[in-house]
């Protein structure tokens, strides 16, 4: 819930008082923040005891538990969005 509140604060700043010339800087800062988040995830992984053991013994099973649900979710959402949403999304950013 906090996430929505912070996003809303950002939306208000962007709508009413953020200088448009700083748009690029804002985007660059988002990349920096993302890298910090991913780095922190890596630190958490590296500090997890038995990570290597877990991966070697349960890695394959975990991969199957990851791939099948992920692929099915993707297929279903693809058909739903193609059927019910506007087709205005493949343009390059």
């Amino acid at each position: 819930m906090e996430i929505l509140i912070f996003m809303l604060i950002g939306v208000l700043i962007g709508r009413f008082c953020f200088p448009k010339k700083l748009k690029k800087l804002n985007e660059k800062m988002q990349v920096v923040m993302t890298m910090l988040l991913i780095f922190a995830m890596g630190v958490m992984l590296g500090r997890r005891e038995n990570l290597i053991n877990e991966l070697s013994s349960l890695g394959f099973k975990s991969l199957v538990f990851c791939l099948i649900p992920t692929i099915l979710s993707t297929i279903i959402v693809y058909f739903l969005t193609e059927r019910f949403f506007d087709r205005d999304k493949k343009e390059d950013k």
Partner: peptide
Amino acid sequence: LASHTDYILYLTMVLVGISVGLHE
């Protein structure tokens, strides 16, 4: 940094919100 990811995420959300807000 690694133990305060909440704050990084909140700041990210403000920045994302700004992008959304700029998109009229």
